[in-house]
Each structure stands twice: as C-alpha cells, then as structure tokens.
Amino acid sequence: MTITEKQKRWLKAQAHHLKPVVLVGQRGLTEGVFSEIDHALNDHELIKVRINAGDREERATAINLIQERSQAVLVARIGNVAIVYRANEKKSAPLVVPHF
C-alpha cells in the first residue's frame, strides 16, 4: 500500500488526538505485541504505538519490523511514538483517506 505525502499529512492530523493504543516495553516486540497491533489496526485502521525500550536505532528497527509484520504504512514518527495506518475495507465504517 502506498500513500502520498499529502495523505500522510491528513492521516497525521487525524491521529493528533489519539492516545497510544499499544505500548512496547522492555521485553520488546513479542508475538503478543504483534497480535495486539494487528487487532488494533483491524479495529481502528489508524493507531499510535509507543516504544519505550531501547535507544533511537533500536526504536527505528522496531518500527520497521512493525511495518513489515503488520503490512501497515508508517505515517509519522515523533520521538518514541509511531503512527501507523492499514486500510480495512471489511470494517463497517472504514476510514476514508482523501485522494489529493
């Protein structure tokens, strides 16, 4: 899935008021964390993930792994919080991303 920079800015604005849904702690990315991320993306499509463990490079690696495993798009990364998006057409009221 590819989205444009304008769509990313729009999604970032939509995520501004959201609280982090998934928290990654000292144990890192476990199967349970990936399961929660997948479940949250199915339910919400646009989520924030807070990564509290490791230094900057470890957090970047974790975010890349989250993208690969969940097949989601990284909208933005602000400090230790990542905003990720994955469309779910099966949802009763899917998030409609405008086409710029």
Rank of each mutant, 00 (worst) to 15 (best):
R59F: 10
W10T: 08
H16P: 01
L74S: 05
A62E: 04
L95T: 01
A72V: 06
G28R: 13
S70L: 08
V21Y: 05
D43V: 15
R50C: 07
K90M: 10
A87T: 09
K12P: 02
G25E: 14
I83Y: 01
W10P: 03
S70D: 00
A40F: 11
V81R: 01
G32L: 12
H16D: 09
E36H: 14
F100E: 07
F100K: 02
W10H: 03
I66F: 02
E36A: 13
A87P: 07
R9F: 07
S35K: 14
R9L: 12
A53K: 11
G28C: 12
K12M: 06
L74D: 07
H39K: 15
E31G: 15
K19Q: 11
E31W: 15
A53W: 06
V73Y: 00
Y85V: 13
R86C: 09
G32H: 12
V84Q: 06
D55Q: 13
R77D: 03
I3Q: 00
N88V: 13
T4P: 09
I78A: 04
E45W: 06
M1E: 08
A76M: 04
L18M: 05
L74I: 15
H44R: 14
K8I: 04
A82R: 01
E58W: 05
K91A: 11
R77N: 09
V24H: 02
L23I: 15
I78Q: 05
L95N: 03
T61W: 09
V21W: 03
K48W: 07
T30Q: 15
K48Y: 04
L46Y: 05
F34V: 10
V73E: 04
H99E: 08
F100A: 02
N52W: 13
H44C: 13
A72M: 12
L11V: 11
L46W: 02
Q67G: 10
A72L: 12
D38T: 15
T2F: 10
L46K: 11
P20Q: 14
A93M: 07
V84P: 03
R69M: 06
A53M: 13
D38W: 07
I51Y: 01
L18I: 11
L18A: 09
T4N: 04
R69A: 04
G54I: 09
V97Q: 00
A53D: 12
F100D: 04
V84S: 03
K12L: 13
L65V: 04
H44M: 13
S92P: 10
I37V: 15
K8V: 08
L95W: 00
I3M: 03
I37Q: 09
E45Y: 06
H16V: 12
P20V: 10
I66C: 05
N64D: 12
V73D: 05
L74C: 10
K90I: 11
A62G: 08
T61H: 11
V84M: 14
K19C: 04
V33K: 11
L65D: 04
Q26F: 04
P94E: 06
L46H: 07
V81W: 00
I3K: 02
G25W: 02
L95F: 02
F34C: 08
N42I: 12
A62C: 06
A40M: 14
